[in-house]
Amino acid sequence: MSFVNHNKKEVNCKIVYYGPGLGGKTTNIQYVYKKTSGDNKGNMIKLNTENERTLFFDFLPLELGEIRGYKTRFHLYTVPGQVFYEASRKLILRAVDGLIFVADSQLEKMEANIESLDGLEKNLTEQGYDISKIPLVFQWNKRDLPNVTPCEDLEKRLNKWGSPSYEAAAINGDGVFETLKEVSKLVLMNLKGGL
């Protein structure tokens, strides 16, 4: 849930990167961190295992500048993608303002994408959210690899809501900021005045 401080003229919004394990969620925010200057970013927190798999969450605070006199801060989180971290994913989704679903475009990962998306929908419903009403952007990641599912098929099988989608190869940075920019715009447009 976004936090609007009218006295200080600040908005703080939470964006969560969701998707199957090893799909590119952490790679996305690592790229954002790399490309953001010191003034715009805070420390990147990575809570992960010895072999670099996300254990609890990654977190990156971004200060993007002002919009209509309000300082905008986006808090980027990733969830752990491995199947058995379901309890942690539920916690990270609390009070989410915007979602980026990072799908792994490789042919053999379609079932994992579907399972992850079903889990997202279920977790949101349990917390009283309607996924069709939350700013959501799909990222078809790993387009640089051979043997990837055509984007039309990914759209048909995953994007039930006609949400914006972007092709990406997060390892090279392709599509990373485009995706983030789109969800940020949707979040800001959806923002209501608060505290």
């Binding site: 919009i67 309000y70 800001l188 209501k192 005045g193 608060g194």
Partner: peptide, 8 residues
């Protein structure tokens, strides 16, 4: 009168 309208 908490603000419920869109901020932007």
């Amino acid at each position: 009168g908490e603000k419920e309208e869109f901020l932007f």
